[in-house]
Write a protein that binds this DNA or RNA. Structure first.
Lengths: 192, 192
DNA sequence: ACCTGAACACCGTTCAAGT
DNA sequence: ACCTGAACACCGTTCAAGT
């Protein structure tokens, strides 16, 4: 029967989870869907656009946060990291799609963070930049964390000593978010 | 005559500046050097390692900073951004090499920033994370800035109205660095 | 020690032609 | 409207064999 956009994105996500981003190719995806490679180009202009759709799928669980601006930043950061860690190479894929401007969901997230920054007292000219700074942190941190996690999971049976110290990603993650909140919190007073 | 590592890196940098990262392929590089593709694998284990060497070349102008911890962070951030903007797709290439752990120069930069954070009063368990957070910002910001700059430069003859507002990357860049410095500056007092 | 030649196993994208 | 078949123009990497 007919191929729909959502079937393609679903199959792509399966491929990602099963084999990683390196094996998420247009040809392999076509094979999985039992269509010719060209068929995908009826539904998506190019690979970047398809990856953007996969990114948006990964980010579906990231819902609108509630509370004061600090709460909303915390919730968004935590939900974003959780979503990325839920799929093999999720952080890398979303990071690339964000940089390429192909993820609508990331744009929504940046908007929300921009509003939070504005509410914190950051002037309008810089609120979006503050929001993007938060996003750069979450993506950078999680790409890093996930690559270590996946490397450990594949063989490398616990280096034991170092891995304990390097562990507890959540606590480390929160420390970084705290740093940024600290900076934003003093932005209206201490900075020009 | 004989092919040396430094000739390969130099030719790769020329290719990067002239045609961008998408055209920096092992085969194209070999053609440029008038050797067979396999020859490159005598000098570099794989493409990632070669790109790491190019990243280190790009980062050569980033020198040891001086002054108190705030000065050193400012100087490092500014010099890093300048170096990335000096080569086509420089930010993207260095960002990828850093994520892959292939840039020795980036490790040195992180070390320096870690020391600065420690001097600012961030405890040892978190100083490196603070340093990485700064690096995530500089890389994320500059990847973004450079993609816009290069997009504008290629055709797109100044959208005029928007481009003036979106312009002055340096001032916007400094604002973000200020945010991070603010967070680090209060880290010893306000944060747990 | 250093490099060639040739192969292996792939890529993303396009597009006339079919249904 | 949606897809196939086949082509175009490439990739990164390996490795026996040569010098």
């Amino acid at each position: 029967m007919q191929l729909h956009k959502r079937d393609v994105v679903e199959a792509a996500t399966r491929l990602l989870d099963g084999y990683g981003i390196a094996d998420l190719t247009m040809r392999r995806l076509a094979r999985e869907l039992e269509v010719s490679p060209g068929a995908l180009y009826w539904h998506f202009a190019n690979k970047q656009q398809l990856l953007g759709a996969v990114a948006d799928r990964i980010l579906e669980p990231v819902s609108e946060p509630a509370g004061d601006w600090r709460d909303r930043v915390w919730q968004t950061c935590a939900a974003l990291r959780d979503a990325l860690l839920s799929h093999t190479d999720g952080a890398e894929l979303v990071s690339a799609s964000f940089a390429a401007g192909q993820s609508a969901a990331m744009k929504v997230i940046v908007s929300g963070l921009t509003e939070a920054a504005a509410q914190a007292g950051v002037d309008d000219a810089h609120a979006e930049l503050a929001a993007r700074t938060i996003v750069y942190y979450v993506l950078g941190f999680t790409v890093d964390e996930q690559s270590r996690l996946q490397w450990d999971a594949a063989g490398a049976a616990l280096p034991d000593d170092q891995s304990v110290l390097a562990a507890d990603g959540s606590a480390r993650f929160r420390f970084g978010v705290g740093l940024l909140l600290g900076g934003i919190g003093v932005a209206d007073t201490a900075l020009t």
